[in-house]
Design a protein around this nucleic acid. Structure first.
Length: 305
RNA sequence: GCCGGGGUAGCUCAGUGGUAGAGCGGCGGCCUGAAAAGCCGCGCGGGGGGGGUCCGAUUCCCUCCCCCGGCA
């Protein structure tokens, strides 16, 4: 029996994935599934540049605005929900088209994740306190005794990963480096095709800056003001723009500085996204040229399928 | 035209007679339950042009060009 196909359209932020995806979805008879760690949140449409209503009207979209911003979200939840969407979409005789910029989410979906218990909050808190008191190097040395392989891979300053590795060891009794080898994703069950949209760096940064200006025109300040009244979850709080505008609202700097910070941090983010995607050799790269419309790009992608 | 200050990394600037640094920016990488996060690495330079002194000049001297301030 032939494997069903799943498509991914990924790429750094502000390359025009959402617009392109609509045209591509039409050609592929696809439904779009978001692959974005921030657009899962409600009430964050402007700050996350979520696809507009007009776009959503044209093609069915999934996993957008499904979580209240007070709630945490993570990869494993994403994986579960996305896997379910794949089944449903294929059942409807449609093709899943994943669109977004969160490389880890894509990777976990395709390549899998090891089974572990949900994070242990109190244990984590304890470990972070120790890290603060004794330094991340101390925890790293401890990790080195239980799981030298993981310790070798994780930098002694990378507190977050050291804590996770220790947490996994304490809750499962197994070294994370061993568990990480046990991953099973969807990659084997489906025919996967990944396209990454890209453009020259200076043009990309220019578009990012323009997009952020546009966000302000759309009412970003108002949206963020409302968000800051809520008790934002740790994960939702990470969206670029929250801490930058908080600094403005609390009078630490002016609006121009807040904008500058947002633009800068978004450019750095785009660079990190590219690093992630570059590593994945399955990806077919699509270079957007100066005059390319989303429709033209979609046509080009379709011709390569 | 005269006097003074300056021309060193993409930007703002240090420094030294012996193959140039810092901050900002930029670039590269890592990533398995926080990933729009977290972490790591890399000066990325024909020292404004030309000539001279010297074993050796970015640093000293001469000259030209450009910028800033003052006087005309």
């Amino acid at each position: 029996m032939q494997k069903s196909k799943i498509f991914f359209l990924v790429g750094p932020t502000a390359t025009g994935k959402s617009e392109t995806a609509v045209y591509l979805a039409k050609k592929l008879k696809a439904e779009i599934v978001s692959c974005d760690s921030m657009q899962v949140y409600k009430k964050m449409d402007i700050i996350t540049s979520a696809p507009s209503r007009q776009i959503i009207k044209k093609v069915r979209h999934h996993l957008l605005g499904i979580i209240p911003p007070e709630k945490e979200y993570d990869v494993s939840r994403y994986r579960r929900q996305a896997a379910k969407k794949i089944k449903e979409i294929i059942h409807r005789n449609k093709t899943p088209l994943f669109v977004g910029g969160t490389g880890l989410y894509m990777s976990i979906l395709i390549d899998g994740i090891f089974k572990a218990k949900a994070q242990d909050e109190s244990l984590r808190r304890r470990l972070y306190q120790q890290a603060q008191r004794l330094g991340s190097n101390y925890l790293h040395k401890r990790l080195n005794r239980f799981d030298p392989l993981a310790a070798k891979k994780i930098h002694p300053h990378d507190t977050r990963r050291i804590v996770r590795a220790l947490e996994v060891f304490e809750t499962t009794g197994k070294p994370i480096s061993q568990l990480q080898k046990e991953r099973k994703g969807l990659g084997n069950n489906y025919e996967i095709k990944i396209f990454c949209l890209n453009m020259p760096r200076d043009k990309l940064y220019q578009r990012i800056k323009e997009r952020i200006e546009k966000m302000f025109k759309q009412g970003l300040l108002d949206e963020v003001k409302k968000l800051l009244r809520l008790k934002l979850s740790r994960t939702a709080h990470q969206a670029i723009g929250i801490k930058e505008l908080k600094g403005y609202f609390t009078g630490q700097y002016d609006l121009a500085e807040a904008k500058r910070l947002m633009k800068h941090n978004t450019c750095l983010y785009a660079k990190r996204q590219l690093t992630w995607f570059r590593k994945d050799k399955r990806i077919k790269w699509i270079e957007a040229k100066q005059q390319d419309t989303p429709k033209a790009i979609a046509t080009r992608i379709f011709s390569k399928i």
